[in-house]
Amino acid sequence: MSGRRVGGAGAPPPRDLARLALGGALPVLATALATDPAGFLFWTVTGSGAYASFSGSVPHVLARALVNAALLAAASAALLLPLARAGRAPAELRLWLGGSALAVVTGLHFFGHYYLQLVPPLALLAARALHRRPPGARAGALRATAGLAALFVLWGLLAPRPDTDHAVRLAHAVRDRTAPGERVLVWTMHPETYWLAGRPPASRYLTAGLLTNHSGGRSGARTGEPYAVPGTWHVFRAETAADPPHLLVDDSRGGDWSPRHLPTLRALLAERYRPAGTVDGARLYVLRDR
């Protein structure tokens, strides 16, 4: 884009729109061709119908959306006033920002990292707005932004991490009860437990999400085997039957994706495993014939 086009507010010519569409389509097409086009379409579009549904608790969804939007606004607080005074933005940046906002909303999960895609267009819009401000105002906005960035870095370094601490404690228990190389299955939404424990997973499904439709971003959504990604339970049964995990950890802690709601997993536990204690609320099971 030329400096004239970025600074202006008129509609971009058709050639620019065509180049923009081509630039967006080529990486996606190249990725699909480099992997498996049918599988790529399934895992990115057609296999995510339940994930993108409108089921779930509306207050929970709204709370997540507002809290994460407020965090982004707080991080950008020093730039909001210049942005508000900057006038109509160039069409290219408005299109970029609008597409990013649509991607944040799609699926109604509102994870914090979804909002990161709003940062690049907002940064360009802020740079344009500050360029039109007096030097003193620019310096003040930059100093305030640097201060806010420092606060967020400190927050990231010092804030409690209960989920990470839980995963570490669980990984220690897994490592103590298995030998190196022994496969384990951790029924969890935190796959870092495998890495922390240094044990190979017994299934390609590192979290319970694809097998149950459970997701941390939405409360009250439909969960269970009928709402899994098609074909996943067939693969899961084959994997656990061919080489049963030496240790099975139920880390659902009474959630709606716990084994008591899942006939296949419940039967696997009843037929082949015996209880081996609990760790931080998670239940451990070992093979009966070990």
Rank of each mutant, 00 (worst) to 15 (best):
T46W: 12
P90Y: 00
R19C: 12
L83N: 11
F40V: 11
A123V: 15
L102G: 11
A30M: 13
S100K: 06
A86Q: 06
R19K: 03
A73P: 14
P82L: 10
P27V: 12
P37Y: 07
D36T: 12
L116Q: 08
S55M: 06
L33N: 07
A65M: 09
A65N: 02
F111W: 06
A38F: 04
A70F: 02
G112W: 03
V28C: 09
L116C: 06
L108R: 07
F40I: 12
T46F: 02
G23F: 02
T44C: 08
G112Q: 10
A69W: 03
G87R: 01
A21Q: 03
A103V: 07
G39F: 01
A30C: 14
L93E: 05
L81W: 11
A38D: 09
L97V: 09
S53V: 00
G24W: 01
V67I: 10
L72R: 00
A101S: 07
L20P: 11
D36C: 11
G49A: 07
L122M: 13
L93H: 01
V45T: 14
A50K: 03
A34Y: 09
G23V: 12
V61C: 05
V61M: 07
E92S: 13
A77P: 09
A103F: 00
L83C: 11
V119Q: 06
Y51L: 13
P121V: 08
L22K: 02
S57K: 00
G87P: 12
H113Y: 12
T31F: 12
G107D: 05
R94P: 01
N68W: 05
A126Q: 08
Y51W: 08
F42D: 14
A123R: 11
L118K: 09
L118T: 13
G98A: 13
L93N: 08
F111R: 08
L124E: 03
L22S: 15
V67P: 01
L20A: 15
Y114W: 12
S100W: 01
A77E: 05
Y51C: 00
W43S: 10
A65I: 04
L108T: 02
L93S: 09
H60K: 05
G23D: 08
L71Q: 11
R94A: 14
V104W: 01
A123H: 10
P37W: 06
A84G: 15
V67C: 10
V104M: 03
H109A: 10
F111E: 10
A74I: 12
Y115Q: 07
A84T: 13
R85F: 03
A75H: 08
H60G: 10
L108Y: 05
T31E: 10
A30R: 13
A63F: 01
A126Y: 03
R88T: 13
P59S: 07
A103W: 00
L97N: 03
S76L: 15
A101P: 01
L66V: 08
V104T: 04
S48R: 14
L66R: 00
A101C: 01
A69V: 02
F110G: 14
A73L: 15
G99Y: 01
L83Y: 05
S48Y: 02
R64P: 02
A77D: 05
L81K: 10
H113F: 11
V58E: 00
L124K: 02
F54P: 03
E92C: 13
G56S: 00
L20I: 15
A91Y: 02
A101D: 00
S76M: 14
G112S: 13
L71D: 03
L108D: 04
S55H: 06
V119M: 14
L79S: 10
G98H: 01
S55Q: 02
L97S: 04
S76Y: 03
A77K: 04
